[in-house]
Design a protein around this nucleic acid. Structure first.
Length: 646
DNA sequence: AACGACATAGTTTTT
DNA sequence: CTATGTCGTT
């Protein structure tokens, strides 16, 4: 237990019912939560009475790993998972109570859209992207009971959508939180079962919880139970997505005995960096208030760069990354370039490539969002859950079997008259429906696949499925080059390996598929030795020796839309998160003119830069023009070099 | 059903 | 600029 400071120790060993730990960036929050769980176990609290929830799989995984080191085998019996995984567990166990079976499918966002589109079309309503966007939000609000007086038309769509999802034996991400709350509210026996399992309930990153998630917590944890909540109001950056840091304040009302502990000792960054962070965040009015303290000395001043063009900015970052690498023997993977929005990555990529700096862009399509993976998954999902019409449509269209919208509509009508799923319908499709033979043989091959997964070895079953789907042939014929084919087939090979690993541990296909949809799995950040390029959002929870925050202009960071909508404080927290990622060296940079959507705009310095006036901040080139002049010298040097043929 | 021309919009995105 | 989606043509 050594090495805990006074506040950490108190947080780990507090014996009262409810506690809020306000944990600043880099204050050892994960350590505290894992030590607290370990302490509970050592106090002989039954393992089945402890539940810890996080928001990301990564965080859950890390917590598990630490506890495994600390407790050994016992770790396996602890319930440590994401909010959504907990919800899924509850729904699976009590599926019948919400009109599902335990083999239910979890619909990712794209599938939820498709489901909504289908519902709208059935109701003969327009189903364009914009409307679906609006409805999706509205649906979330209605389902969670947030909206007061619901427009009856929206309610109708919501009800239809629910029926549709039940018929598909599917749930969406919202359902994973809403349905468990509903089950708990309506069934007393289930309520007591889960309250026993959550006798000690711990929540990480609480500032990112939504109202719905908090409602679930309240159902699960009475004031007689033990609630530990860890969070940081200054790092709440998902408000736009329904997270409500106000949940932190609400706790005090719902759990009157709440004990509050602050962790302000930071073990990550230099004094200069923390001083900058403190100065910035002090401008927010909506905060509990805390000051991070460093234990590392002042360190190097925070640099601020002002350059003329966004291209120059990227080049300068690239050059400096190289210089740091050479000078300080820093490793590439300890450096990161952070930006407000994804499109800013492109200029940086070009410059880094030019400068021969190895880099890796985080974000983009996740593994499970790639089309070839979605295709394979459609077959697998249909195999497990034959009522999943959306997977049916994807599977039967890939590869193309000459079945298009018209044929599907006919099949769908036929299915409706007999209350069949599309798969059942195609097995018995009357000959007057076009392509009836082809569809019937497709249907039989799916039934074969099901049989395979039930009776054959996992690898044989997978290979049989892949073979029968003819997806590999489709990839080979549609790819524009050899590289694309190998990329896609090796992705499928990864999925296969993943499935084999899961099945070797005794898992079934239905569990495998459910698991997958809870994992955003942004490609496991394969590249070890490379500079990381990512949005500030993606950087949360990470730390780097050297951090560059680019695009410090008004309109870029803070983002223009946030500015217009008066969401300045969240933008400020976002920069606070960015700053507190840095351990030793922080560089902020702005460009006077930025290329955006093919046009060049002239921008002012970010209002946040003005707030950083501080003796630990070094404005390397205050006057943008001087920076420009320097670039001009370099330009002419480059031209001379070119003329000399170098 | 498939393809290509045209239009349109373009923060952030744990699950 | 460019990624995505819609619409019209074959």
């Amino acid at each position: 237990m050594s090495g805990l400071n006074e506040q950490q120790y108190e947080a780990v060993h507090y014996r009262g019912k409810s506690m809020l730990v306000l944990a600043g960036a880099g204050s050892g929050k994960t350590r505290v939560i894992t030590e607290r769980i370990a302490a509970l176990v050592e106090r002989e609290v039954p393992l089945d009475a402890i539940t810890a929830v996080t928001f990301t799989n990564k965080a859950a995984k890390e917590m598990r790993q630490r506890l495994k080191k600390r407790l050994g085998k016992k770790e396996k019996k602890l319930r440590i998972c994401t909010f959504h995984a907990l919800g899924l567990e509850m729904i699976r166990e009590h599926a019948a109570l919400v009109g599902r079976s335990s083999k239910l499918a979890v619909f990712a966002e794209s599938e939820q859209r498709a489901a909504l589109r289908s519902v709208l079309q059935d109701l003969r309503l327009p189903s364009d992207k914009e409307r679906i966007d609006i409805l999706k939000k509205q649906l979330t609000a209605i389902k969670s009971g947030q909206q007061q007086d619901v427009d009856p038309r929206a309610q109708r769509i919501c009800d239809e959508y629910d029926t549709f999802m039940q018929r598909m034996n599917a749930v969406d991400f919202d359902d994973l939180i809403v349905l468990p709350a509903k089950i708990l509210a309506e069934h007393e026996d289930v309520r007591w079962l889960w309250r026993a399992r959550c006798r000690h309930f711990l929540v990480d990153e609480y500032q990112d919880s939504s109202r719905t998630q908090y409602d679930l917590v309240k159902c699960l944890v009475t004031t007689e139970q033990n609630l530990t909540v860890v969070g940081d109001d200054d790092q709440a950056i998902y408000g736009w997505r329904g997270a409500d840091a106000g949940n932190l304040f609400q706790l005090e009302k719902d759990y009157p005995a709440l004990h509050v502990i602050r962790l302000e000792q930071n073990y990550r960054s230099t004094g200069a960096i923390l001083s900058t962070a403190n100065t910035l965040i002090a401008n927010n009015s909506q905060r509990i208030g805390k000051e991070l303290r460093s234990n590392m000395g002042m360190g190097k001043a925070v640099r601020v760069w002002q350059v003329k063009e966004s291209d120059d900015e990227a080049e300068r970052v690239a050059a400096d990354l190289r210089a740091q690498y050479a000078k300080e023997d820093a490793k590439w993977q300890n450096m990161a370039v952070l930006y407000r929005a994804g499109y800013q990555a492109r200029v940086l990529e070009i410059a880094l490539r030019e400068a021969n700096v190895p880099y890796h862009v985080s974000g983009g399509l996740s593994f499970f969002e790639r089309s070839e993976i979605k295709d394979v998954l459609a077959y697998l999902k249909l195999t497990v859950n034959m009522t999943d019409d959306l997977s049916f449509i994807r599977a039967i269209s890939k590869p193309r079997r000459g079945v298009g919208a018209k044929t599907l509509a006919a099949l769908s009508d036929f299915a409706a008259t007999r209350s069949f799923s599309l798969l059942e319908a195609c097995l018995e499709a009357p000959t007057e429906i076009r392509k009836a033979d082809a569809m019937a043989s497709f249907g039989r091959s799916i039934v074969d696949m099901e049989h395979g997964f039930l009776h054959l070895e996992p690898d044989t079953a997978f290979d049989q499925m892949l073979e029968a789907s003819r997806l590999i042939g489709m990839i080979e014929s549609e790819a524009k080059d050899e590289k694309e084919t190998t990329r896609k087939t090796s992705n499928i090979e990864s999925l296969r390996a993943y499935w084999l690993r899961y099945s070797e541990a005794g898992g079934q296909l239905d569990g495998f598929l459910q698991q997958i949809f809870l994992q955003s799995n942004k490609d496991e950040e394969a590249d070890e030795s490379s500079v990381r390029l990512m949005t500030v959002h993606a950087a949360k929870g990470l730390e780097f020796d050297h951090v560059y925050v680019v695009g410090m202009e008004d309109g870029t960071f803070p983002h223009k839309n946030a500015l217009d909508e008066g969401r300045i404080e969240e933008e400020r927290r976002l920069l606070y998160v960015a700053i507190t990622r840095a351990r030793y060296r922080l560089t902020l940079s702005m460009a006077r003119r930025r290329k955006r959507y093919g046009q060049t705009e002239t921008l002012d310095a970010s209002r946040f830069l003005a707030e950083l006036e501080n003796k630990h901040v070094d404005w390397v080139d205050r006057d943008p023009e001087s920076a420009g002049a320097k670039e001009e010298v370099e330009d002419s040097m480059a031209r001379i070099r070119e003329m000399l043929g170098l």
